[in-house]
Design a protein around this nucleic acid. Sequence first.
DNA 1: TACGGTAGTGGAGACCTCTCCGGATAGCAA
DNA 2: TTGCTATCCGGAGAGGTCTCCACTACCGTA
Lengths: 180, 180
Amino acid sequence: MVRSDARENRARILEAARQAFAESGDTSMNQIAQRAGVGPGTLYRNFPTREALVLAIYQHEVDQLIGSVPELLATLPPLKALQRWTTDLVSAMRKKHGLGDALSSGAHQAITEQTYGPVIAAITQLLDAGKRDGTIRTDADPGDFLQLTGALWRAASGAKDRSQPMLGLILDGLKAHPQR
Amino acid sequence: MVRSDARENRARILEAARQAFAESGDTSMNQIAQRAGVGPGTLYRNFPTREALVLAIYQHEVDQLIGSVPELLATLPPLKALQRWTTDLVSAMRKKHGLGDALSSGAHQAITEQTYGPVIAAITQLLDAGKRDGTIRTDADPGDFLQLTGALWRAASGAKDRSQPMLGLILDGLKAHPQR
DNA sequence: TACGGTAGTGGAGACCTCTCCGGATAGCAA
DNA sequence: TTGCTATCCGGAGAGGTCTCCACTACCGTA
Protein backbone atom coordinates (compact mmCIF):
# COMPACT_ATOMS: atom_id res chain seq x y z
CA MET A 1 0.00 0.00 0.00
CA VAL A 2 1.57 3.23 -1.13
CA ARG A 3 0.27 6.23 0.65
CA SER A 4 -0.89 9.10 -1.53
CA ASP A 5 1.30 11.68 0.14
CA ALA A 6 4.29 9.49 -0.52
CA ARG A 7 3.42 9.29 -4.20
CA GLU A 8 3.07 13.05 -4.44
CA ASN A 9 6.32 13.63 -2.67
CA ARG A 10 8.12 11.37 -5.08
CA ALA A 11 6.64 13.25 -8.01
CA ARG A 12 7.59 16.59 -6.52
CA ILE A 13 11.15 15.41 -5.98
CA LEU A 14 11.45 14.24 -9.57
CA GLU A 15 10.09 17.50 -10.89
CA ALA A 16 12.40 19.57 -8.69
CA ALA A 17 15.36 17.45 -9.67
CA ARG A 18 14.53 17.72 -13.35
CA GLN A 19 14.51 21.49 -13.12
CA ALA A 20 17.60 21.66 -10.95
CA PHE A 21 19.65 19.41 -13.20
CA ALA A 22 18.54 21.31 -16.26
CA GLU A 23 20.07 24.41 -14.75
CA SER A 24 23.27 22.86 -13.47
CA GLY A 25 24.75 19.45 -13.02
CA ASP A 26 26.31 20.00 -9.63
CA THR A 27 23.17 20.70 -7.68
CA SER A 28 23.38 19.18 -4.25
CA MET A 29 20.92 16.63 -2.97
CA ASN A 30 20.04 19.04 -0.19
CA GLN A 31 19.11 21.76 -2.62
CA ILE A 32 16.87 19.39 -4.51
CA ALA A 33 15.17 18.26 -1.33
CA GLN A 34 14.65 21.83 -0.27
CA ARG A 35 13.32 22.79 -3.68
CA ALA A 36 10.87 19.93 -3.50
CA GLY A 37 9.80 21.02 -0.02
CA VAL A 38 10.92 17.77 1.49
CA GLY A 39 13.52 16.66 4.01
CA PRO A 40 16.75 14.98 2.96
CA GLY A 41 15.53 11.79 4.57
CA THR A 42 12.59 11.58 2.21
CA LEU A 43 14.79 12.23 -0.79
CA TYR A 44 17.17 9.45 0.15
CA ARG A 45 14.40 7.01 0.91
CA ASN A 46 13.08 7.42 -2.60
CA PHE A 47 16.47 7.59 -4.30
CA PRO A 48 19.22 6.01 -2.24
CA THR A 49 22.00 7.48 -4.36
CA ARG A 50 22.49 10.38 -6.68
CA GLU A 51 22.78 7.89 -9.53
CA ALA A 52 19.36 6.44 -8.81
CA LEU A 53 17.86 9.91 -8.98
CA VAL A 54 19.63 10.82 -12.19
CA LEU A 55 18.61 7.58 -13.83
CA ALA A 56 15.00 8.15 -12.83
CA ILE A 57 15.06 11.62 -14.31
CA TYR A 58 16.48 10.51 -17.61
CA GLN A 59 14.53 7.30 -17.84
CA HIS A 60 12.67 8.73 -20.79
CA GLU A 61 15.80 9.58 -22.76
CA VAL A 62 17.29 6.21 -22.01
CA ASP A 63 14.11 4.46 -23.08
CA GLN A 64 14.18 6.35 -26.34
CA LEU A 65 17.77 5.35 -26.94
CA ILE A 66 16.91 1.75 -26.28
CA GLY A 67 13.88 1.93 -28.52
CA SER A 68 15.95 3.18 -31.43
CA VAL A 69 17.89 -0.07 -31.70
CA PRO A 70 15.49 -2.00 -33.97
CA GLU A 71 15.31 0.80 -36.47
CA LEU A 72 19.07 1.21 -36.53
CA LEU A 73 19.50 -2.48 -37.11
CA ALA A 74 16.92 -2.41 -39.88
CA THR A 75 18.65 0.35 -41.82
CA LEU A 76 22.34 -0.16 -41.12
CA PRO A 77 24.77 -3.05 -40.97
CA PRO A 78 25.38 -4.12 -37.37
CA LEU A 79 28.76 -2.48 -36.90
CA LYS A 80 27.53 0.82 -38.27
CA ALA A 81 24.41 0.58 -36.15
CA LEU A 82 26.52 -0.02 -33.06
CA GLN A 83 28.70 2.91 -33.94
CA ARG A 84 25.78 5.23 -34.41
CA TRP A 85 24.04 4.03 -31.27
CA THR A 86 27.12 4.43 -29.12
CA THR A 87 27.74 7.90 -30.48
CA ASP A 88 24.20 8.82 -29.56
CA LEU A 89 24.65 7.34 -26.11
CA VAL A 90 27.83 9.29 -25.46
CA SER A 91 26.18 12.40 -26.76
CA ALA A 92 23.23 11.91 -24.41
CA MET A 93 25.65 11.39 -21.54
CA ARG A 94 27.31 14.67 -22.36
CA LYS A 95 24.13 16.68 -22.60
CA LYS A 96 22.33 15.34 -19.60
CA HIS A 97 24.12 16.32 -16.47
CA GLY A 98 25.24 13.38 -14.41
CA LEU A 99 23.90 10.72 -16.74
CA GLY A 100 27.39 9.61 -17.68
CA ASP A 101 28.47 9.07 -14.11
CA ALA A 102 25.25 7.29 -13.37
CA LEU A 103 25.40 4.89 -16.29
CA SER A 104 29.07 4.04 -16.08
CA SER A 105 29.11 3.60 -12.34
CA GLY A 106 25.78 1.84 -12.53
CA ALA A 107 27.58 -1.26 -13.66
CA HIS A 108 28.28 -2.03 -10.03
CA GLN A 109 24.98 -1.08 -8.53
CA ALA A 110 22.07 -3.43 -8.23
CA ILE A 111 19.85 -0.45 -7.54
CA THR A 112 20.03 0.70 -11.11
CA GLU A 113 18.83 -2.56 -12.54
CA GLN A 114 15.72 -0.99 -13.95
CA THR A 115 17.75 1.23 -16.21
CA TYR A 116 20.95 -0.69 -16.42
CA GLY A 117 19.33 -3.94 -17.48
CA PRO A 118 17.59 -2.54 -20.56
CA VAL A 119 20.77 -0.77 -21.64
CA ILE A 120 22.64 -4.06 -21.49
CA ALA A 121 19.79 -5.66 -23.41
CA ALA A 122 20.08 -3.01 -26.12
CA ILE A 123 23.80 -3.56 -26.45
CA THR A 124 23.21 -7.29 -26.53
CA GLN A 125 20.85 -6.88 -29.46
CA LEU A 126 23.38 -4.84 -31.39
CA LEU A 127 26.22 -7.21 -30.69
CA ASP A 128 24.16 -10.29 -31.46
CA ALA A 129 23.18 -8.92 -34.84
CA GLY A 130 26.85 -8.54 -35.68
CA LYS A 131 27.71 -11.95 -34.33
CA ARG A 132 25.01 -13.48 -36.47
CA ASP A 133 26.28 -12.03 -39.71
CA GLY A 134 29.87 -12.68 -38.74
CA THR A 135 31.14 -9.11 -38.47
CA ILE A 136 31.51 -9.10 -34.71
CA ARG A 137 33.55 -11.57 -32.69
CA THR A 138 31.39 -14.05 -30.89
CA ASP A 139 33.01 -13.56 -27.49
CA ALA A 140 32.10 -9.86 -27.29
CA ASP A 141 30.47 -9.06 -23.97
CA PRO A 142 27.80 -6.36 -23.53
CA GLY A 143 28.93 -5.50 -20.02
CA ASP A 144 32.49 -5.02 -21.19
CA PHE A 145 31.27 -2.78 -23.94
CA LEU A 146 29.27 -0.61 -21.59
CA GLN A 147 32.28 -0.29 -19.34
CA LEU A 148 34.40 0.86 -22.24
CA THR A 149 31.68 3.32 -23.15
CA GLY A 150 32.28 4.88 -19.77
CA ALA A 151 35.84 5.62 -20.84
CA LEU A 152 34.49 7.10 -24.05
CA TRP A 153 32.24 9.42 -22.18
CA ARG A 154 35.04 10.54 -19.93
CA ALA A 155 37.14 11.18 -23.00
CA ALA A 156 34.33 13.17 -24.56
CA SER A 157 34.10 15.36 -21.47
CA GLY A 158 37.72 16.44 -21.64
CA ALA A 159 39.11 19.47 -23.38
CA LYS A 160 39.30 17.77 -26.74
CA ASP A 161 36.68 15.21 -27.61
CA ARG A 162 38.62 12.04 -28.38
CA SER A 163 35.60 9.80 -28.28
CA GLN A 164 35.35 9.18 -32.01
CA PRO A 165 38.86 7.83 -32.55
CA MET A 166 38.51 5.80 -29.38
CA LEU A 167 35.22 4.37 -30.50
CA GLY A 168 36.84 3.48 -33.80
CA LEU A 169 39.51 1.58 -31.94
CA ILE A 170 37.02 -0.31 -29.83
CA LEU A 171 34.92 -1.21 -32.85
CA ASP A 172 38.01 -2.52 -34.61
CA GLY A 173 38.69 -4.64 -31.57
CA LEU A 174 35.16 -5.98 -31.74
CA LYS A 175 35.45 -7.05 -35.34
CA ALA A 176 35.58 -10.73 -36.07
CA HIS A 177 39.02 -11.76 -37.28
CA PRO A 178 38.82 -13.13 -40.78
CA GLN A 179 41.30 -15.99 -40.81
CA ARG A 180 44.05 -15.32 -43.27
CA MET B 1 62.80 29.36 -0.93
CA VAL B 2 61.21 26.44 0.82
CA ARG B 3 61.12 26.80 4.52
CA SER B 4 62.47 23.94 6.57
CA ASP B 5 59.31 23.46 8.61
CA ALA B 6 57.32 23.26 5.41
CA ARG B 7 59.58 20.52 4.10
CA GLU B 8 59.20 18.57 7.32
CA ASN B 9 55.46 18.98 7.32
CA ARG B 10 55.23 17.65 3.82
CA ALA B 11 57.33 14.65 4.76
CA ARG B 12 55.21 14.00 7.84
CA ILE B 13 52.04 14.16 5.76
CA LEU B 14 53.41 11.70 3.23
CA GLU B 15 54.48 9.31 5.97
CA ALA B 16 51.13 9.53 7.74
CA ALA B 17 49.28 9.04 4.47
CA ARG B 18 51.40 6.07 3.53
CA GLN B 19 50.58 4.37 6.82
CA ALA B 20 46.93 5.31 6.69
CA PHE B 21 46.42 4.08 3.15
CA ALA B 22 48.24 0.87 3.91
CA GLU B 23 45.65 0.20 6.58
CA SER B 24 42.58 1.23 4.63
CA GLY B 25 41.78 2.96 1.39
CA ASP B 26 38.97 5.12 2.66
CA THR B 27 40.86 7.14 5.17
CA SER B 28 39.63 10.69 5.23
CA MET B 29 41.85 13.64 4.48
CA ASN B 30 41.07 14.95 7.94
CA GLN B 31 42.32 11.80 9.57
CA ILE B 32 45.55 11.99 7.64
CA ALA B 33 46.03 15.62 8.57
CA GLN B 34 45.38 14.83 12.20
CA ARG B 35 47.73 11.86 12.11
CA ALA B 36 50.43 14.06 10.66
CA GLY B 37 49.81 16.66 13.35
CA VAL B 38 48.87 19.25 10.79
CA GLY B 39 45.78 21.27 9.95
CA PRO B 40 43.59 20.43 6.96
CA GLY B 41 44.70 23.66 5.34
CA THR B 42 48.31 22.54 5.28
CA LEU B 43 47.36 19.18 3.85
CA TYR B 44 45.40 20.74 1.03
CA ARG B 45 48.09 23.29 0.22
CA ASN B 46 50.56 20.47 -0.30
CA PHE B 47 48.16 18.17 -2.07
CA PRO B 48 45.20 19.98 -3.54
CA THR B 49 43.24 16.81 -4.16
CA ARG B 50 43.13 13.31 -2.84
CA GLU B 51 44.51 12.16 -6.18
CA ALA B 52 47.58 14.32 -5.86
CA LEU B 53 48.31 12.79 -2.47
CA VAL B 54 47.80 9.25 -3.66
CA LEU B 55 50.03 9.81 -6.66
CA ALA B 56 52.76 11.22 -4.45
CA ILE B 57 52.55 8.20 -2.16
CA TYR B 58 52.79 5.70 -4.96
CA GLN B 59 55.33 7.64 -6.97
CA HIS B 60 57.83 4.90 -6.30
CA GLU B 61 55.61 2.13 -7.63
CA VAL B 62 54.74 4.17 -10.66
CA ASP B 63 58.40 4.92 -11.31
CA GLN B 64 59.19 1.26 -11.13
CA LEU B 65 56.45 0.47 -13.61
CA ILE B 66 57.75 3.10 -15.95
CA GLY B 67 61.29 1.86 -15.56
CA SER B 68 60.28 -1.64 -16.57
CA VAL B 69 59.41 -0.59 -20.09
CA PRO B 70 62.85 -0.88 -21.71
CA GLU B 71 63.38 -4.39 -20.39
CA LEU B 72 59.94 -5.48 -21.53
CA LEU B 73 60.60 -4.10 -24.97
CA ALA B 74 63.97 -5.84 -25.08
CA THR B 75 62.56 -9.27 -24.31
CA LEU B 76 59.10 -9.22 -25.87
CA PRO B 77 57.52 -8.13 -29.11
CA PRO B 78 55.81 -4.75 -28.71
CA LEU B 79 52.24 -5.99 -28.50
CA LYS B 80 53.14 -8.59 -25.89
CA ALA B 81 55.15 -6.02 -23.98
CA LEU B 82 52.20 -3.64 -23.98
CA GLN B 83 49.92 -6.41 -22.79
CA ARG B 84 52.22 -7.36 -19.94
CA TRP B 85 52.82 -3.78 -18.93
CA THR B 86 49.14 -2.92 -18.90
CA THR B 87 48.34 -6.00 -16.87
CA ASP B 88 50.95 -4.94 -14.35
CA LEU B 89 49.54 -1.44 -14.29
CA VAL B 90 46.00 -2.64 -13.62
CA SER B 91 47.28 -4.99 -10.98
CA ALA B 92 49.12 -2.15 -9.24
CA MET B 93 45.98 -0.06 -9.40
CA ARG B 94 44.07 -2.83 -7.69
CA LYS B 95 46.56 -3.38 -4.91
CA LYS B 96 47.29 0.21 -4.03
CA HIS B 97 44.26 1.87 -2.53
CA GLY B 98 43.08 4.80 -4.57
CA LEU B 99 45.77 4.58 -7.23
CA GLY B 100 43.28 3.60 -9.89
CA ASP B 101 41.02 6.54 -9.26
CA ALA B 102 44.01 8.83 -9.19
CA LEU B 103 45.54 7.67 -12.44
CA SER B 104 42.38 7.43 -14.45
CA SER B 105 40.95 10.71 -13.26
CA GLY B 106 44.38 12.26 -13.51
CA ALA B 107 43.91 12.49 -17.23
CA HIS B 108 42.02 15.70 -16.68
CA GLN B 109 44.17 17.24 -14.00
CA ALA B 110 47.15 19.41 -14.79
CA ILE B 111 48.19 18.99 -11.16
CA THR B 112 49.23 15.43 -11.67
CA GLU B 113 51.60 16.24 -14.50
CA GLN B 114 54.57 14.95 -12.57
CA THR B 115 53.17 11.46 -12.46
CA TYR B 116 50.83 11.58 -15.38
CA GLY B 117 53.44 12.81 -17.83
CA PRO B 118 55.87 9.92 -17.31
CA VAL B 119 53.06 7.39 -17.56
CA ILE B 120 52.08 8.82 -20.91
CA ALA B 121 55.72 8.73 -21.91
CA ALA B 122 55.93 5.05 -20.99
CA ILE B 123 52.85 4.23 -23.04
CA THR B 124 54.25 6.27 -25.90
CA GLN B 125 57.43 4.17 -25.87
CA LEU B 126 55.44 0.96 -26.00
CA LEU B 127 53.17 2.16 -28.75
CA ASP B 128 56.00 3.60 -30.80
CA ALA B 129 57.87 0.32 -30.73
CA GLY B 130 54.84 -1.35 -32.20
CA LYS B 131 54.32 1.35 -34.75
CA ARG B 132 57.92 1.02 -35.86
CA ASP B 133 57.71 -2.69 -36.52
CA GLY B 134 54.27 -2.35 -38.04
CA THR B 135 52.24 -4.31 -35.50
CA ILE B 136 50.42 -1.30 -34.04
CA ARG B 137 48.38 1.19 -36.02
CA THR B 138 50.17 4.48 -36.45
CA ASP B 139 47.29 6.62 -35.23
CA ALA B 140 47.18 5.03 -31.79
CA ASP B 141 47.17 7.69 -29.09
CA PRO B 142 48.77 7.21 -25.65
CA GLY B 143 46.21 9.38 -23.90
CA ASP B 144 43.37 7.38 -25.39
CA PHE B 145 45.03 4.21 -24.25
CA LEU B 146 45.42 5.43 -20.68
CA GLN B 147 41.79 6.44 -20.65
CA LEU B 148 40.76 2.98 -21.76
CA THR B 149 42.99 1.55 -19.07
CA GLY B 150 40.79 3.36 -16.60
CA ALA B 151 37.87 1.29 -17.81
CA LEU B 152 39.99 -1.83 -17.41
CA TRP B 153 40.73 -1.02 -13.86
CA ARG B 154 37.10 -0.39 -13.07
CA ALA B 155 36.29 -3.72 -14.68
CA ALA B 156 38.95 -5.41 -12.60
CA SER B 157 37.46 -4.00 -9.42
CA GLY B 158 34.07 -5.51 -10.03
CA ALA B 159 32.82 -8.82 -8.81
CA LYS B 160 34.35 -10.72 -11.69
CA ASP B 161 37.60 -9.51 -13.13
CA ARG B 162 36.88 -8.90 -16.81
CA SER B 163 40.04 -6.95 -17.43
CA GLN B 164 41.85 -9.61 -19.42
CA PRO B 165 39.21 -10.12 -22.11
CA MET B 166 38.74 -6.38 -22.30
CA LEU B 167 42.44 -5.81 -22.67
CA GLY B 168 42.48 -8.39 -25.42
CA LEU B 169 39.80 -6.47 -27.24
CA ILE B 170 41.64 -3.19 -26.92
CA LEU B 171 44.89 -4.71 -28.13
CA ASP B 172 43.11 -6.14 -31.15
CA GLY B 173 41.79 -2.69 -31.86
CA LEU B 174 45.31 -1.33 -31.67
CA LYS B 175 46.70 -3.79 -34.18
CA ALA B 176 47.70 -2.48 -37.53
CA HIS B 177 45.36 -3.67 -40.25
CA PRO B 178 47.20 -5.70 -42.79
CA GLN B 179 45.63 -4.77 -46.11
CA ARG B 180 44.04 -7.74 -47.73
C1' DT C 1 71.26 39.72 18.45
C1' DA C 2 67.23 42.03 17.15
C1' DC C 3 64.06 42.70 13.53
C1' DG C 4 60.98 42.91 9.53
C1' DG C 5 59.10 40.71 5.51
C1' DT C 6 56.95 36.87 4.04
C1' DA C 7 56.20 31.86 3.45
C1' DG C 8 53.62 28.92 5.86
C1' DT C 9 50.16 27.45 9.39
C1' DG C 10 45.84 25.47 11.16
C1' DG C 11 41.38 25.66 12.65
C1' DA C 12 36.81 27.72 12.19
C1' DG C 13 33.31 27.29 9.10
C1' DA C 14 30.48 26.72 4.74
C1' DC C 15 28.49 23.24 2.52
C1' DC C 16 27.95 18.41 1.33
C1' DT C 17 26.29 13.30 1.79
C1' DC C 18 23.74 10.16 4.17
C1' DT C 19 21.45 8.04 8.59
C1' DC C 20 18.49 7.70 12.29
C1' DC C 21 14.38 7.97 14.73
C1' DG C 22 10.58 10.53 17.32
C1' DG C 23 6.60 12.38 15.63
C1' DA C 24 2.88 13.08 12.19
C1' DT C 25 -0.77 11.24 9.27
C1' DA C 26 -3.37 8.59 5.71
C1' DG C 27 -6.38 5.05 5.33
C1' DC C 28 -8.99 1.46 7.34
C1' DA C 29 -12.27 -0.68 10.71
C1' DA C 30 -15.83 -0.15 13.82
C1' DT D 1 -16.96 10.03 13.55
C1' DT D 2 -13.45 8.16 15.99
C1' DG D 3 -9.42 5.42 17.01
C1' DC D 4 -5.67 2.60 15.59
C1' DT D 5 -1.48 1.61 13.37
C1' DA D 6 1.52 0.87 9.50
C1' DT D 7 3.59 4.01 6.85
C1' DC D 8 5.97 8.01 5.93
C1' DC D 9 7.99 12.45 7.14
C1' DG D 10 11.78 15.66 7.98
C1' DG D 11 15.29 17.65 10.45
C1' DA D 12 19.12 17.07 13.68
C1' DG D 13 23.54 15.43 13.46
C1' DA D 14 27.80 12.63 12.40
C1' DG D 15 31.42 12.90 9.54
C1' DG D 16 33.42 14.40 5.19
C1' DT D 17 35.72 17.89 1.67
C1' DC D 18 37.79 22.03 0.92
C1' DT D 19 38.52 27.37 1.69
C1' DC D 20 39.81 31.38 3.87
C1' DC D 21 42.51 34.35 6.52
C1' DA D 22 44.35 36.02 11.08
C1' DC D 23 48.23 34.52 12.99
C1' DT D 24 53.00 32.39 13.51
C1' DA D 25 57.73 31.49 12.99
C1' DC D 26 61.60 31.07 9.71
C1' DC D 27 65.44 33.38 7.77
C1' DG D 28 68.19 37.05 5.53
C1' DT D 29 69.82 41.46 7.01
C1' DA D 30 72.05 45.03 9.75
